[in-house]
Structure formats: C-alpha cells, structure tokens
C-alpha cells in the first residue's frame, strides 16, 4: 500500500512539469504587451521599452521559461506585473476563500446527493424517483453563471434575504455562492449513487441479506451503500475538478476573493506571472485530490492496491 501511494505521488511531478510547459506556451502565444497595459492610452516608446526591460520581457522565451521554472522550484512564483506583489502572496491571500467555497460545496453535494440517490434507488421509478431524476437532470443543465445571477435576483433583490456578493463575516454570505457552485455536484453525486446502488442491490449477497429478514434500511446502509461508495468516491473527486472550473465563474459573479476570480482578473490584465502561478495551483490542487481519491480507492478496494505493488 505504501509503495502504491509513493508511486502515485511521484507521478504528480512529471504531470506538473508538463502543465508548466503548457501554461507557459499559452501565455507566450497570448497577445498583449504587459508594458502597454500598464501605460494605457498614453505610452511613450521610451517608457514602454524601460518597462519591458524591467519585466524581463526582452529575454528570449526559453530563458524566460527557465528563469520562471527554477523560481517555481524554490516556491518563488515571481511578482505580479501590476501590483509588484509576490505572486505567492496573492495566492496565499486568496486560496483560503476558494478552498472554503469548494469544500463547503462538496459537503453540501455529498449531504444532499447521497441520500437522494439512495432513496431513489430504493424505490426505482416511483413518483419520488421520477421527481429526483427530472430535478437532477435539470440541475446538471443549468449554467453556473446564470444560476448565480438568478439566485441573486431572487434572494437578494426581490426577497432581500441574503447579501448579494462579497465574503463577509456572517454565514449569510456563503449561501448563494456555495449553493450555486454545489448544484451540479449534488446532481452528479445523486445520479451516480442511484445507479451504483441499483447495481449492488441486485447483487446476490444483498438479496441474501434481505431474504434473511434484515430490515430494509439496514441492508441498504450496511451492505449496499458501502459497496456503492467506490464509484461515488470517484465521482466526488471528478466533481472537485469541475468545482474548480465552476469556482472561476462563481467567484467572478459573487466577487468572491478567491483564486478563481484572481485567474480571470489576471488573465484580463495580462498579468502573466499571476496567471501562471494560479493555473499551476489549480492543476496541483486537482492532482492532489485525484491522488487522495486513488488512495481512498485503495483502502476501499484493497484488490487495486495489491495490483499496483
């Protein structure tokens, strides 16, 4: 098991290396001269040149890449072009807000998704199951940005119940962004739970347990759910990736001071060091979550671990 975890962890390194090359190349291809963006409508040539020189934009690309990567290896992501703040500080300041949002959304999705899926699976094709199916399918089809806007219209503007944006001190600020971000994850988890539960319920040993007269609920929770959990864990991991994507838009709509809105802002401002840093962090977070999923998998299904070691 330990060997498996170690191996799996080491695999992150080449992937992150690849990500760094891709991110750097995309930024290189991105038009827009940061020097011009700093100067705006009035930009004398001498000024432009001085700023390019200071930012190291006159170096050939491969040198820029090497400089950047060797910095990153020492956790130095450079400084923001606009604010001159170390990128690592920008990220540190804003990462907690994103983690909060993603974790709460995941918890919400698990807390609602799994029970809904289980209940649906226990009475397939009942009225309740059909309602759940229609609802979850619709939830999967709602664009995050539209849902955010509509929830703001309904709950902040019309009803005046909840603050519209920002990350204030009270819990009210969390409701709209967390629900907006969590919606599609609720639906995915509910659907996955339902289908895996249906499969396991059909399995022999569950039938046996049932025929032995164990009560319905105990069968479901004691046997079926445990086995159904494996794919559900995977889907939670996969969902985390789409939660990160969703966070980009959710944070932008709700002015949530996380790294998702930082990504959009810095992309708009062509603040390349920040964009590169943020994208690396996204990829790293994604990799870590997938690693945790795989490890959890190993514990839940020891056969997998033995196969790898």
């Amino acid at each position: 098991m330990f060997k498996y975890i170690l191996r799996r962890t080491l695999m992150i390194i080449p992937v992150m290396f690849g990500v760094s090359i891709i991110v750097f190349s995309i930024m290189l291809l991105t038009p827009g001269d940061p020097a011009r963006l700093m100067l705006g409508e009035r930009a004398p040539e001498a000024q432009l040149e001085a700023i390019r020189e200071r930012l190291g934009l006159n170096e050939p690309p491969h040198i820029q890449y090497v400089n950047w990567v060797s910095g990153v290896a020492q956790l130095d992501f450079g400084r923001s072009i606009r604010s001159n703040r170390p990128v690592i500080n920008e990220i540190q300041q804003r990462l907690p807000a994103t983690i909060e949002l993603a974790v709460l959304a995941t918890l919400l999705a698990v807390a609602i998704g799994i029970p809904v899926g289980v209940l649906s699976a226990m009475r397939p094709n009942s009225a309740g199951d059909n309602v759940a199916t229609v609802t979850t399918f619709t939830m999967l089809a709602i664009p995050v940005f539209w849902q955010g806007l509509m929830m703001m219209i309904i709950f902040s503007v019309w009803l005046g119940w909840l603050p519209a944006t920002g990350r204030g001190q009270s819990w009210q600020y969390y409701i709209l962004p967390v629900v907006t971000l969590g919606t599609s994850a609720i639906a995915s988890i509910a659907r996955m739970t339902r289908s895996t539960m249906m499969e396991t319920i059909k399995l022999d040993y569950v039938r046996t347990a049932r025929s032995k007269g164990l009560s319905g609920m105990r069968v479901v929770y004691g046997h079926a759910l445990r086995n159904a959990l494996l794919p559900v864990v995977t889907i939670i991991g996969l969902q985390f990736g789409s939660l990160l994507s969703g966070a980009v838009i959710t944070e932008t709509i709700f002015s949530w001071p996380g790294i998702g809105s930082l990504a959009v802002d810095s992309m708009r401002a062509k603040d390349f060091p920040v964009v590169q840093g943020v994208v690396l962090v996204f990829a790293f977070a994604y990799a870590i979550v997938n690693l945790l999923v795989d490890i959890a998998y190993g514990f839940l299904d020891p056969r997998l671990a033995t196969r790898y070691s």
Binding site: G18, I26, T30, G241, L244, G246, M267, V275, Y286
Partner: peptide, 14 residues
Amino acid sequence: ALPAFLLALAIVAA
C-alpha cells in the same frame, strides 16, 4: 490535469 474550463479560458485568452 487542468480544469477544462480554465484551459479553454486560457486558450481563448491566447
């Protein structure tokens, strides 16, 4: 390894 939407966003930016 990159969230798909973020990747698309970066490509469009480029």
